[in-house]
């Protein structure tokens, strides 16, 4: 079932067009990977899904992006509410310079989700457990989040994102700064989270896209060249450009 349906999305940075007529159906409770060379538009597209492009003055987004029939590209949309529902994890772990507990409690606090201290404690614990971090930090929740290792910080950011129970999580190169073990932990987490959440991940690691996703989209020069089941894309893509890219023949 489709969770997000983008139709004819065009994005401009001033006069420069960054995305051309991108149409894509993102399935619910699946992992969708977006791959392509630098500057191909995959991150620009990802940012359309929680209106992160709004923070760029010269950026203009045209076309329709619907999440459960709600038009995300509407001026009337409550963007704060949208971002509660569509969380994001970035390339570089960016925990707040606050305690581990406060990092996770931040979202539920500003959205007024928890009614009591006990409820907040529970949200923090569940979020950290879902992010597979609880066992490592349960005895030092009052320590500063930025003091954790890179992999732990990234899982803390995931815990922070899931603390407000989003339906979609966007990940922009979430493992590019992590070692292989921390990467495996995040990938295991992605596998686990997809039971409840729809995940869209931008990655430069094709083997990671192949490992974690069920659908893959290949972007090139602002266009979605091919989109389909991940095994098909990596075993026998239909498009020559896709094949050239994934086999290292690009250029």
């Amino acid at each position: 079932m489709s969770k997000i349906k983008a139709e004819n999305v065009n994005v401009y940075y001033g006069s420069k067009q960054a995305l051309f007529d991108v149409s894509i159906d993102i399935a619910e409770k699946e992992v969708t990977a977006l791959i392509g060379p630098s500057g191909c538009g995959k991150s620009t597209f990802l940012r359309c899904l929680n209106r992160m492009n709004d923070v760029i003055d010269i950026c203009r987004v045209e076309g329709s992006i619907k999440m459960d029939n709600l038009e995300l590209n509407s001026r009337k949309l409550d963007v704060v509410r949208l971002r509660e529902n569509v969380g994001m994890v970035f390339q570089k772990p960016n925990p707040f310079p606050k305690t581990i507990y406060e990092n996770v409690a931040y979202g539920p606090t500003i959205h007024g989700i928890a009614q009591s201290k006990e409820e907040m404690d529970q949200i923090v614990e569940i979020s950290l457990k879902k992010a597979a971090l609880w066992n490592e930090v349960k005895d030092r929740l009052d320590e500063i989040g930025t003091g954790l290792s890179g992999g732990q910080q990234q899982r803390l950011c995931i815990a922070r994102a899931i603390s407000v129970s989003p339906e979609v999580i966007l990940m922009d190169e979430p493992c590019s700064a992590l070692d292989p073990i921390a990467t495996a932990q995040i990938e295991e987490l992605i596998d686990d989270l997809k039971k409840e959440v729809t995940i869209v991940i931008v990655t430069h690691s094709m083997s990671q896209a192949a490992r974690v996703s069920q659908k893959t989209g290949f972007f090139h020069l602002g266009k979605l060249i091919e989109f389909g089941p991940t095994d098909k894309i990596f075993k026998n893509p239909d498009n020559q450009q896709t094949q050239d890219y994934i086999t290292g023949r690009f250029g």
């Binding site: 094709m206 990596f234 094949q243």
Partner: peptide, 9 residues
């Protein structure tokens, strides 16, 4: 090399 697509085949 972790071959993909035609290279894997």
């Amino acid at each position: 090399r972790q071959p993909m697509a035609i290279d894997l085949r």
